[in-house]
């Protein structure tokens, strides 16, 4: 028996918004520790890894490890039936073919119950090696979304450069080019870009903006985002989900042939 209670539906709603454009179907792997999801997009260029710790949820139980095959679009639609502040319980019996959703209104005067059919998903699980990154940049998640959106109007790819000066995002297209630079030692003034950079080696890498755009759908989960880069390895983009866990995205770099 698996059962997880969230004080508010909004976390689950935001998690689904942050994953459903990348992944159609995914196994939610539930264990005594919590809920984990790992899935690649259909072109195997990017990967999303979600972790929610059971002991940080309103309540959690999972006696036997269970993989729940979920169509992310269907789950998104069911979660839209909940108000943001509804207490939300998700539940599945061992060997069940449905997941049960219970939404309780703040005043506990309305209870809704939905069942969603589960699927058999044959997913490929990848081992992500521990990686020491040359550069890790912490910045405002809103600012990152803005930069990705702005540079997407210029080109399909972004060149990310991190050095001791700061981080620069650059895009080139048929009609022009653009760059956005953030300094690593912002003044203490309010309204400064407020980024921190942990740098051992300068890096310069190219990535497809299309995938970064999908990743920025996680911005409502966290005020901050961290970008971790090393030469010739996938970019890691991480959004913390309060004390409950994280959503991490990996994106393979574009490499000169």
């Amino acid at each position: 028996m698996f059962e997880a209670t969230f004080n508010q539906a909004s976390i689950l709603k935001q998690v689904l918004e942050a994953t459903k454009d990348l992944v159609n179907d995914a196994n939610w792997d539930c264990s005594a520790e919590g809920i984990a999801l790992q899935a690649m997009d259909s072109s195997h260029v990017s990967l999303v890894s979600l972790s929610l710790r059971g002991d940080e949820l309103a309540s959690y139980r999972c006696e036997n490890q269970i993989s729940l095959g979920i169509n992310m679009n269907t789950m998104t639609k069911i979660l839209k039936c909940a108000e943001n502040n509804d207490r939300t319980i998700i539940r599945a019996d061992d060997d069940a073919d449905v997941m049960v959703f219970v939404f309780e209104s703040e005043g506990r005067d309305k209870t809704s119950k939905y069942e969603m059919k589960l699927m058999d998903i044959d997913s490929e699980h990848l081992g992500i090696p521990e990686q020491e990154y040359s550069a890790t940049v912490q910045m405002s998640s809103k600012e990152f979304s803005r930069i990705v959106r702005d540079l997407s109007t210029i080109g399909e790819n972004v060149e990310i450069t991190v050095d001791k000066e700061g981080i620069t995002f650059g895009a080139k297209g048929e009609s022009g080019s653009g760059t956005v630079s953030l300094k690593s030692n912002p003044s203490v003034d309010e309204g400064s870009s407020n980024i921190t950079i942990d740098l051992t080696d300068s890096v310069k890498l190219n990535f497809a903006l299309r995938y970064l755009t999908f990743f920025t759908k996680a911005a409502p989960l966290s005020d901050n985002v961290s970008l971790s880069l090393s030469a010739d390895v996938p970019l890691m983009v991480e959004y913390a989900i309060g004390d409950v866990g994280f959503i991490r995205y990996y994106l393979a770099p574009k490499i000169d042939d």
Binding site: H44, V45, L47, L126, G127, L251, P253, I255
Partner: peptide, 14 residues
């Protein structure tokens, strides 16, 4: 030009 690599080149199958 620049080629998009697959993630599976970087991460092992678990």
């Amino acid at each position: 030009g620049e080629a998009q690599r697959s993630l599976t080149l970087f991460f092992r199958r678990a």
